[in-house]
Design a binder for these strands. Structure first.
Lengths: 210, 210
DNA sequence: TAGATTGTTAATCGATTAACAATC
DNA sequence: TAGATTGTTAATCGATTAACAATC
């Protein structure tokens, strides 16, 4: 299935969950057809922007005067984003943040399935957190070779993050969700998505302090 | 203390925690002076970009050939970001994400102090989570009027987020950290920082699915 | 001095927005 | 038909990068 492919921008991709939520809300209200303009108003975005984003993922063209069929567009986004494909993920670092992610079942709706956690603390090894087994970090490589995990999540202190990332790349992980405050060095083709709570906090802090 | 003020960009602000971490690492290695170029290399950023960012927060000019004094620059960033000022925050929604934030003591290093949580579930009210008391949502307004809290965190389902935000604005909260998948409508002057785990996941999911 | 590094001004690049013709 | 809405092409805007003179 040749996709006309990744000529979609990062920004557009990040807006997709908002569109999806907006559409699901519309559907739940019994709305059958929706215009890009009304989505734009709802989300406080420019209408041309929304139209372009939708054009990138929609399987059909919109109809002038009417807009887009809600149900169809929902399916298109879910399909485009791959939310229906189950994607296994492992998490390294079972500290407070790691445990929070393990306990957050919201991710399942997006196709993410947490299958194992890794840590170094002896008291955690062999236990389960929210039903997910915790292994010693030394077992990471063997586990990945055996299970072909496509996604790795890093919730460790920054100084060990690069080492974990290296291991991830070696065992064929294709996408890394990095919660550590480090820029990771990875080979071409591996995606690093940095999640910076500290950077977000920086915004708040600066606004308050100003 | 008139700051030459917010002519700093959002992007620059978000890079600050990275600079800070990089500088602290340098300091711990006994380095006294550091060039923008070497910071840029370390963080894989353009050197002119780093120089501009630093210029926005540094109290001194860099010295050609030498660069910037590490200790001083650390203090400048901490001061600029207000990490030394304790900022009270409340959190609404004590679900799994909310609890994770309550248990995450990392934020204290950035001056954020969680003082109370609010929820509607009867079984949580009156309890403490990670030492922070949980109140019923109906007490939110009274609490805020009494305590002058500058920061509010929303970790509720999206459909109630706007209502919480309205209450926040009414009681004088100046910055909202929004983990709900909604665009919040707030008056001029109130900052909304959206934290979209779903948007980040969208990146990973799309990369894997492609 | 020579060279690394600084700070500034101009060029580039890419995302967003505006303008507009096409269509149900 | 008239008008809302579409999709496309061109203009704008702002962040990043390049070029370069100044300086320790």
């Amino acid at each position: 299935m040749e996709k006309k492919a990744s000529n979609i921008t990062v920004q557009a991709l990040q807006r997709m969950p908002y569109y999806l939520h907006c559409l699901e809300q519309a559907r739940d209200n019994g709305i059958k057809t929706i215009s890009a303009t009304s989505i734009a108003n709802e989300l406080k975005l420019n209408d041309v922007l929304v139209r372009k984003d939708i054009a990138a993922v929609s399987s059909t063209q919109g109809k002038p005067k009417a807009g887009f069929p809600v149900d169809e567009l929902i399916l298109d986004i879910i399909d485009y984003m791959g939310y229906n494909d189950k994607k296994d993920a492992i998490i390294v670092g079972a500290g407070s943040l790691g445990r929070a992610l393990l306990g957050n079942h919201e991710f399942e709706g997006y196709g993410l399935s947490l299958v194992a956690a890794f840590d170094i603390k002896p008291e955690l090894i062999g236990k389960e957190i929210s039903g997910i087994p915790v292994y010693h970090i030394s077992e990471l490589e063997a586990f990945c070779s055996e299970h072909r995990v496509p996604i790795g999540i890093i919730t460790t202190p920054p100084d060990v993050a690069q080492g974990i990332a290296d291991t991830f790349c070696r065992v064929g992980i294709m996408a890394i969700w990095n919660f550590a405050l480090t820029r990771l060095d990875v080979p071409e083709g591996v995606l690093v998505q940095n999640e910076n709570l500290a950077s977000s906090l920086a915004m708040l802090s600066h606004h308050i302090t100003k």
